[in-house]
Design a protein around this nucleic acid. Structure first.
Length: 520
DNA sequence: ATTCCTTTGAAGGTA
DNA sequence: TACCTTCAAAGGAAT
């Protein structure tokens, strides 16, 4: 067990990597240990929440709540708020819809004391990336305590001008959208940006700090656009400016999202997978394989992100991004599309569930005291799938085995639904696992005919611990009550079954991780 | 071009 | 209070 044999004491994130190559037996040990420490994690997370609330600027909190209570329209709120931010930041970058990313995303390492990666308490698993974003770009900024509040390259008047703890925003800004290839990305080929490039396309004043949470209202963040927009020709820029678009303030990333951002490139490198859905499944499993300490780092980062977000956008509400078509953000194409998309999705869901009000749910059937008998979606407070599939009620056990664990019922189309019931593992050589050993729970998974190419990169549905508990109670999400949780571990289980190539790659990755962290 | 998929966590809304 | 829904990132695949 990594955490048991770490010896060195520096658990700088290598655990999860090493965990990944343990066999199931060891996984079970880990699971037990994790279960044992679940309460600790719960306490930790709880404390994080409390700390967040306590540490939160009373003013900002008050302002946030107060302003939210005001009867103001979304546009007004954002105009006001953005104006304020823009003024503070003196760059006016918010005014341009072609948000060019976040210059400071790339700043941390070189500007850290000693020019090294932050060895802060927030240090997280890091692997030296040969491509993609710098793994710490999204997380280093959290290293407040190791971060010079006024780095020499940054104008100090920024924090002075703003009523906000601007240094914190600098620190925390990086974990927002850091598109691969985006500004916040430190590509080996690019190295560190010259300062001039960091200023933006038009020699923008360095204080023009756009917040990565603000993105062009183009649905997805279109990271490529950020890249291009940074060096966009004025002609194109002018054209874009003709379309007045309100920036969309994105939600702050939660712990898992932060983890995903950091580890995605690594997983891609290891598995040669490109499909995000499959990658996310792997990441989800790895997330649960993390030790509570490792998870706690991300929870802490997420907490800080929320804090910063709240400070930067005191009037913002998650509701603002809810189905814009219904939230009064008229004229905003992306959000309108967004709304349409969501509405369609909802409609499809309702179509798929012909009896929305049906009492045939695991919750109703088994009750809260038997949540372990619930199907996965029910555990996640999603729509019950058990009673949507021909009315059959598979045994809870088999459900846990994922043998009949269907994709979440929100799979909008029956075709996809069926499609995603397949659990064929990715064909990529890097992650192609050997056939599961006889008796392995994986063998219980039904193999649908490979009629859908889409399923080739699909992993078996994930039955994670979090699905067993209340998703709103992450404190308990680390409970592992069944070894089944890990029977489908991505690299971990499979590699241990003899995929030496994968194992080597992954181990190499883990090794690089270790090297990097040790070198810090 | 658009939508879906997939993951966990946070937040807001509803009953 | 419990439950439900939506969104956050990502990018290939499907439509």
């Amino acid at each position: 067990m990594p955490q048991l044999s770490s010896g060195g004491g520096d658990d700088l994130g290598a655990n999860d990597e090493m965990i990944a190559f343990k066999d199931e037996g060891e996984q079970e040990e880990k699971i037990q240990e994790n279960a044992f420490t679940e309460r600790d994690l719960a306490d930790l997370k709880s404390s994080l929440v409390n700390e967040s609330e306590i540490n939160q600027s009373p003013n900002s909190a008050a302002v946030r709540r107060g302003q939210q209570g005001e009867q103001r329209g979304y546009q007004e709120k954002h105009r006001e708020h953005h104006d304020g931010v823009s003024k503070h930041q003196d760059g006016g970058m918010y005014k341009t819809q072609a948000y060019p990313g976040y210059p400071f995303l790339m700043l941390p390492d070189p500007y850290l004391p000693n020019g090294s990666i932050s060895p802060s308490s927030n240090k997280v698993s890091v692997v030296q990336q040969s491509h993609g974003m710098h793994p710490l770009t999204s997380l280093l900024p959290y290293s407040n305590e190791h971060f010079n509040p006024s780095p020499p390259h940054l104008p100090t008047d920024m924090s002075q001008k703003t009523g906000i703890h601007r240094h914190q925003s600098q620190d925390l800004s990086g974990y927002y959208s850091l598109p691969p290839g985006g500004v916040g990305q430190i590509s080996p080929s690019m190295g560190w940006f010259p300062h001039s490039l960091m200023l933006g396309p038009s020699g923008m004043h360095p204080t023009g700090i756009p917040h990565p949470a603000i993105v062009p209202p183009s649905g997805k963040q279109e990271h490529d656009h950020y890249d291009r927009s940074m060096y966009m020709k004025p002609q194109v820029e002018a054209k874009r400016e003709k379309e007045p678009k309100k920036p969309v303030i994105k939600k702050p990333l939660n712990a898992f999202m932060l983890y995903m951002k950091e580890m995605r490139a690594k997983v891609i490198a290891e598995c040669t997978l490109k499909e995000s859905a499959a990658i996310n499944q792997i990441l989800g499993r790895r997330w649960h394989a993390l030790t509570r300490e490792e998870q706690a780092k991300y929870y802490e980062l997420a907490r800080k992100e929320r804090q910063l977000h709240m400070q930067l956008y005191p009037t913002w509400s998650a509701r603002d991004n809810y189905e814009a078509g219904l939230s009064g953000v008229a004229g905003e194409k992306s959000k309108a599309d967004w709304g349409k998309k969501k509405r369609r999705k909802r409609e499809k869901l309702q179509d798929s569930n012909t009896d929305p009000g049906s009492p045939k749910k695991c919750r109703a059937r088994f009750g809260l005291n038997q949540q372990t008998d619930w199907c996965g979606p029910c555990r996640r407070k999603k729509k019950c799938i058990r009673y949507l599939q021909g009315g059959g009620c598979p045994s809870p056990t088999s459900s846990d085995l994922s043998a009949i664990d269907s994709p979440p019922s929100h799979s909008p189309s029956p075709t996809r639904h069926h499609l995603y019931q397949q659990h064929q593992l990715p064909p990529s050589p890097g992650c192609s696992p050997p056939p599961p050993p006889p008796g392995s729970p994986s063998t219980h998974l039904p193999l649908s005919p490979p009629t859908h190419t889409r399923s080739h990169t699909r992993l078996p549905p994930l039955q994670t611990a979090s699905k067993r508990g209340d998703p709103r109670q992450p404190k308990h999400s680390y409970t592992h009550t069944s070894t089944h949780t890990y029977t489908h571990l991505d690299l971990s289980g499979r590699a241990s079954h003899g995929d030496t190539a994968t194992l080597s790659v992954a181990k190499a990755a883990g090794l690089s991780l270790k090297v990097l962290t040790e070198s810090q």
